[in-house]
Design a protein around this nucleic acid. Sequence first.
RNA 1: CGGGGUGUAGCGCAGCCUGGCUAGCGCGUCUGGUUUGGGACCAGAAGGUCGCGAGUUCGAAUCUCGCCACCCCGACCA
Length: 505
Amino acid sequence: MGKQPKTAITPTRAEDYPQWYQQVIKSADLAEVSPVRGCMVIKPWGWSIWENMQGVLDRMFKDTGHVNAYFPLFIPMSFLEKEAEHVEGFAKECAVVTHHRLEPGPDGGLVPAGPLEEPLIVRPTSETIIGSMYAKWVQSYRDLPIKINQWANVVRWEMRTRMFLRTAEFLWQEGHTCHATEEEALEETRLMLDVYADFAENTMAMPVIKGEKTADERFPGAVSTLTIEAMMQDRKALQAGTSHFLGQNFSKAQDITYQDQAGELQHAWTTSWGVSTRLVGALIMTHSDDDGLVIPPKLAPSHVVILPIYKNDEQRSVVLEYCDQLQKQLKEQTYEGEQIRVIMDDRDIRGGEKKWYHVKRGVPIRVEVGPRDIENGNVFMSRRDTGESNGVSRDEFVTQVGTVLTEIQSSLFDQALKLREDNSRTIDTLDEFREYFTPVDKDAPEIHGGFASSHFCEDAPEVQKVLGELKVTTRCIPLDQGQEPGTCIFSGKPSTGRAVFGKSY
RNA sequence: CGGGGUGUAGCGCAGCCUGGCUAGCGCGUCUGGUUUGGGACCAGAAGGUCGCGAGUUCGAAUCUCGCCACCCCGACCA
C-alpha cells in the first residue's frame, strides 16, 4: 500500500472549495453532468435525498392546508407578457419551443418543421399559467382561498451553471395561493416562510435567517419577497427558499376577480413560494467534510450501514447470519416515528475500501461486525459526523441507535450554527465593513468575513457602489430581530434598521 | 456573453514550450498466487478516436485556426 491521503476528498475545503464541492458530489455518486449543456443527471443516491426532502415538505404543505395539482410544462408566450416586471425578470432565460415536428434534412439529419402559430415557452415558473386557470376557477368569495402546490421541473437558461445550485433545468415545488384579502395573503406568505425555516433547521439541520428581500433582490412581479438565507462553509450565503407576496399584481394582469359578500367585484390577492433541488447543494455545503458527504439522519437514504467482516467461508456464513439478525433488529427500531433505514453491504470487496465508500456517501452510522465482535456480543460503531468509533454491546447499540441518530442530527445543526455565529458580526462603520469583506488572500477570495449586520438605507446610491466593489449583496432584512433606528454606514443618512450582508451564490 | 483555465484508459495525472520509432504513470478492473479487524502484497493481463474539425509538415497529443464541453472569476439568477 502506498502513502494514504489524509482525506478521502482532494482538494480539501480549505485548499479549493469549489473543487471540493464537485468532488464530494462525484465521490458520493449524487449526480453527473449530462450531455445537455447545463443539465444534470441526478443519480440514485442524490435522488433519494431529494425524495426524502420532498416527503417531509409535502407532509408539511398538506398539514398547512395545501393540495397538490399539476400544470403544463409549456406556457403560451403571450401569458408571460402580461405582467411587466415578470417579463423583464424571466424573458432573458426562457427556452422557447417554436416547432412541433421534425423532418429529414438535406444532410441526412433532422430539421424542425411545422412552426407553431404561437411559440411556447418552457416554464421558468408557473405564475402565469396557474393564474390563468385561477381566473376561471374564481368567481365568488366562496371559491377562496385556493391553496395549490405543484412538484415540477422548470427551465431557466442560465449562463453559468453549477451542480445542484444552478442548473438549466431544476426540480422544485411551487405553491400558488389565491386569497380574498391582503391580510390573508400576507399571512400565507409568512406561514410558508416559517415552514421553510422549520424544514431547513429541523430536517436539514441547516440554520437559516428569515428575512425580507430588498427591492433589487425581489422576485419579478412580487410586492415583497421573504427568504431564508443560510451560510455555507465557505461563509458565502445561499438563498435556500423564497415566499412571495404578489399583492394584486398578477390578479390584475390576469383578471383573477371575485364577487365579495356585498356583490362588489374584487381582485384577489396571490402568493407563491418555492424550494428547489438547490437544497441538496445547500445540504452538501453545510455539513460535508474533507472525507466527503455528511447527511443529517432525517434525510439520509440509509441511517445505518452494516459491514460484515470475515476471513473465510466458514466465518462468512456466521457473520452474515449475525448481521442479518442485527439488520432485522435494527429495522424494528424507530427514528422520528419511522423504521430505521438499514443497509448491509456484503459485497465481496475489501473492508477498507467498503468503509470509505460509505464514508464518502455520508451514511450517518457505520457498524462493522467481525467474528471477534460476535464472540463478545459486540458491534463496532462509527459516527460519520464526528468520526468517533467504539465497540459497544449489540443490545445497547440496537436500543440506542435512535438516540444516536437524534444526537447526530442536533450536533450537525449546532456545528452549522456555530460556524455562522463565528462568522457573523455587527458592523457600524464603513471602514470595518470594507475590511471585513476584503479577502485576506487574493488567490483564495472565498476567505472573507461572512455575514455582516449593518444599518443601511435602500435608496442611497452609495450602497450599491460599495457593495458592487466588494462583491457583497444584501441578503435580507431579518424578520426576527428587533429593528432600531440608526445611521446608514454607506451614506450617513438615517436608517430604520439593519440588513444582513454577505457574499453569495 | 467577457476574462482565465482544463480536455490524454473507468478515476486522477505526466508528456506539449524545444513535433519523430509500438503515448506513459498512479489508482481502479481482470487472471493467478500470498494475505486478511480493514482504503493489502507479488506476478501477469486487458483497456486510449490524446474533446471535435480543418490546416502546416515526410511526420501532430505536441505548432496554427475554428468549434464544443467542463471548471473558476465576472454580469444574471432558485
